[in-house]
């Protein structure tokens, strides 16, 4: 089952890659570099899905005390951090030729970076506790606070930039997205979600084996 999911994800990724380079048109203003979007946007959407699952797993654990929920939380958090990192790195590579800089303290960049740091902290905490039950409790509390904090971080960073200076960066995406671009994006999004689900299933399985081994 998991194996089939893995192959499905691989197939979808190949189709997505093919579409990104073969089917999607060359963007008029930015040229080929715009194709990074087909990695960048699916990665960030997948990361949001992952952190939503961390939140669900954290709540589920505190309510039911079943370690299965904790396995869901950790299995989502690790790929979530990975995909957030991928978003930041791909955005940085995209930003250099289009904005002329690797990094800028733009609202979205900043809040994504904060999100990354919060969940790296979450994983670090998990690494410091050995007993599964205690680890699950502490991690769940941090996971819930982290999720509750996301909207607050979002608004604080947005206003922080808005008050200091208006955004000088223009998002050069064509507003009504052309159909081939939207379709390529959709295919890649599905591919990334499948890949994430594969990671999730694998990581949860490892967590289960770890627990049965320790217990």
């Amino acid at each position: 089952m998991t194996r089939a999911l893995g192959w499905l994800a691989a197939l979808a990724l190949v189709i997505g890659l093919g579409a990104a380079f073969g089917y999607a048109p060359r963007e008029a203003v930015q040229g080929n570099v715009q194709r990074i979007m087909y990695l960048h946007v699916p990665a960030v959407l997948t990361a949001y899905l992952a952190f939503a699952l961390v939140f669900a797993g954290s709540l589920g654990y505190l309510f039911t005390r079943r370690l299965g929920w904790d396995r869901l939380a950790v299995a989502a958090a690790e790929p979530g951090v990975l995909f957030t990192g991928l978003t930041i790195v791909s955005g940085s590579i995209w930003g250099k030729p289009t904005w002329g800089t690797w990094w800028t303290w733009d609202a979205r960049l900043t809040s994504t970076a904060v999100l990354f740091l919060v969940y790296v902290g979450y994983l670090l905490l998990r690494g410091m506790v050995d007993e599964p039950d205690r680890r699950a409790r502490y991690a769940a509390v941090v996971g819930i606070l982290g999720a509750a904090n996301i909207p607050i971080v979002h608004f604080s960073v947005k206003w922080w930039r808005a008050l200091h200076q208006p955004s000088t960066i223009l998002g050069p995406e064509p507003s009504p997205i052309a159909a081939p671009i939207a379709l390529t994006l959709l295919v890649n999004w599905i591919a990334f979600t499948l890949l994430f689900l594969y990671f999730l299933a694998r990581r949860a399985e490892i967590a289960r084996l770890e627990e049965s081994h320790a217990g």
Binding site: G121, L125, L145, S156
Partner: peptide, 11 residues
């Protein structure tokens, strides 16, 4: 753990 969570308060 604390510092990233405190970004909104600091800002």
């Amino acid at each position: 753990l604390l510092l990233p969570a405190q970004v909104p308060v600091l800002l």
